[in-house]
C-alpha cells in the first residue's frame, strides 16, 4: 500500500513550512525593492521600525491585525468544511450596516458597553445574511460558491454606495458616510494593555475589538475541534463521500458554515467603524477580506496560526504605510 500522506512532524508542518514560505516571500519582495532601485535591507529596516518602532506603531500594527484575525477566521472556518469563501470582503462590508445602525440608534443614549454587544450582534446578523445567500445557492441550487461570493462582493459594494449616498448620509452633507457617532459609538482603546509593557499608544486606534478577536479565535478553535458541528464540518471538508456515508446533511452544513463565516467577517466591521473612524465610510474594508484568505492559508486555518499570521500582515500594512511616507519625505528633501 502506498501511503499518499507522508506525515511531517507537527512542528515542521505548522512551524517550519510557513516559515520557509515567509522567507521566500520576503526574498521575492526584496527583489521587487531592488527593481525599484532601493536597498532591500533599508526597506526592511524601515518596515520593521514602522511597525514596531514605537508604542504608537505597535498599536497601529495590532489594530490592523485585529481586522485580519476576523477575516482570517472567517475564511478558515469555511475552509474546514471544504468551502472557499472569497466573499469575506463583501460580508464584512455589509456587516458594517449592523454596526452603523446600532451606533446611530443608541450612541447618544447608551454607554459603549451596551452599544458594543448590540453592534456586535448586528454585524454578525448582517454578515451572516450576506453569506447565507451564496451558501443557500450552493446548497440548494448547486451554484459554485466561489463565483457567487465574488458576485456578492460587487453587489455589496454597489449596495453600500447606494446606502451611503442616499440613505445613511446625514442631510446636507456631501461626503458618502454616516454622521460621526457620539461617545456611545466609540470603543475604548487598549492603552492600558500596551502600558503594561511600558508602551505609549499615542494616536493608534488599537481598541477592545482586539480582545473580541482573540475570543473569536478561541471560539473557532472550540467550534472546529470540540463540537459535533465542527466534526461534521471537518468530515465534509476532508471527504464529502465519507460525510454522506456518515449521514451528514451537506446542505445544512454548507448553509450553517457560510453563516458562521459571514458572521465572523461581519464582526470585522466593529474595528474600523467603532474603533477608529467612529462613522461608516465608503470602502472601509479596504481589501481585508482578501488579506483574510492569505492569513487563513498562512495560518493553516488554525486559530493559533491565524493570530500570528494576522499580526504579520498587520505589520506589513503598518510598516508599508510608515516607510512609504518616510520615502516620500526623503524624496521631498
Amino acid at each position: 500500500m502506498s501511503n499518499p500522506y507522508a506525515k511531517l512532524p507537527g512542528w515542521a508542518e505548522y512551524g517550519l513550512i510557513p516559515l520557509i514560505n515567509l522567507v521566500v516571500a520576503f526574498l521575492v519582495a526584496g527583489l521587487v525593492v531592488l527593481l525599484v532601485g532601493e536597498n532591500p535591507l533599508d526597506a526592511a529596516y524601515h518596515m520593521i521600525n514602522g511597525a514596531f518602532g514605537r508604542g504608537e506603531y505597535i498599536g497601529f500594527t495590532l489594530y490592523y491585525a485585529t481586522t485580519f484575525i476576523f477575516t482570517g477566521l472567517s475564511v478558515a472556518v469555511a475552509f474546514h468544511a471544504g468551502l472557499f469563501n472569497i466573499g469575506s470582503e463583501g460580508q464584512a462590508y455589509i456587516g458594517g450596516i449592523g454596526v452603523a445602525l446600532a451606533c446611530l440608534w443608541l450612541d447618544q443614549t447608551m454607554p459603549w458597553y451596551i452599544v458594543f454587544p448590540i453592534a456586535m450582534l448586528g454585524s454578525i446578523a448582517f454578515g451572516a445574511l450576506w453569506a447565507f445567500l451564496p451558501g443557500w445557492l450552493q446548497a440548494k441550487r448547486g451554484s459554485h460558491i466561489v463565483i457567487t461570493t465574488i458576485m456578492f462582493n460587487f453587489i455589496a459594494s454597489s449596495l453600500m454606495v447606494y446606502l451611503l449616498t442616499r440613505v445613511l448620509k446625514p442631510l446636507g452633507s456631501m461626503a458618502p458616510q454616516t454622521r460621526t457617532f457620539a461617545e456611545g459609538g466609540q470603543l475604548p482603546k487598549l492603552d492600558w494593555l500596551l502600558s503594561i509593557f511600558g508602551l505609549d499608544i499615542g494616536n493608534a486606534p488599537f481598541n477592545i475589538s482586539f480582545l473580541l478577536a482573540i475570543l473569536a479565535a478561541f471560539g473557532v478553535w472550540v467550534l472546529i475541534w470540540r463540537t459535533k458541528l465542527g466534526y461534521e464540518m471537518r468530515t465534509m471538508g476532508h471527504s464529502p463521500s465519507a460525510a454522506r456515508y456518515a449521514g451528514i446533511s451537506e446542505p445544512r452544513i454548507i448553509i450553517v458554515v457560510m453563516m458562521i463565516s459571514g458572521g465572523l467577517a461581519g464582526m470585522m466591521a466593529l474595528n474600523p467603524i467603532m474603533g477608529e473612524q467612529f462613522r461608516m465610510q465608503l470602502d472601509f474594508v479596504q481589501g481585508a477580506g482578501f488579506v483574510g484568505i492569505a492569513v487563513a492559508l498562512m495560518g493553516r486555518s488554525h486559530p493559533a496560526g491565524i493570530i500570528p499570521a494576522a499580526i504579520l500582515f498587520g505589520m506589513l500594512y503598518q510598516g508599508a504605510l510608515k516607510s512609504r511616507s518616510k520615502c516620500r519625505r526623503s524624496h521631498a528633501i
Binding site: A242, R244, Y245
Partner: peptide, 25 residues
C-alpha cells in the same frame, strides 16, 4: 462500505475520530 479510502474513513482524521464516524450523534 467497500471504499474505505473515500467513504469508510477520513484519512486525515485521527484514528479516534474515525471510530465514531456515522455514530457521532
Amino acid at each position: 462500505p467497500e471504499d474505505r479510502h473515500h467513504v469508510g474513513l477520513v484519512l486525515k482524521f485521527e484514528e479516534s475520530e474515525n471510530s465514531i464516524l456515522g455514530y457521532h450523534h
